[in-house]
Amino acid sequence: MVKFHDRHLGVMMVALGAVIIGLAMALPGPITGAHIAYGPGFFPSLLGVATMLAGVALAIRGPQAAKDGDASDAEAKGRPRFAAPLLVLGSMLAYVYLSDTVGFLPMSMVILVLLLMVGGMRFVSALLLSLATSIAIYLLFSKVLMVPLPRGLLQPWAIWL
């Protein structure tokens, strides 16, 4: 995830504002004969204009001198990493598409083990911790708050859950 230059950000915002205006224009106009003189696209297109203007201002102004603390902060952080945040995104996406068939407990355990090991934990401790945490979260949401968490693969043993 690249550190964005303010000029690039400005250009992106101009484009985004244009897209918002375009989408807003595509909405139906005000209903003729009604009391409403402004269509559903009126307010969003104002927002599109505001986004574009701010984008232009940002692109013209360019980067500002870093405020105190900012520069050292960026240095301390170093170059961003890609793999670990992508794993977080992948876990969430997988949860969206697979949780219904696989079930909450197995999904949560796999995600936890993976991320804990990325954090430097050994497999056995990660496994034990993920088991304990998953069951605790399951009990809290499923038994106390009555959220129907998917059972998925564990359906045959539903009586035990």
Partner: peptide
């Protein structure tokens, strides 16, 4: 944080799901 963050992530997913019981909220 290396231990807390994964737990918070699972909590976030279940928490969003709990609002209307759909995975759309997780998305």
């Amino acid at each position: 944080l290396a231990i807390l963050m994964p737990v918070i992530l699972v909590f976030c997913m279940v928490g969003s799901f709990a609002v209307d019981n759909t995975v759309t909220a997780v998305g």
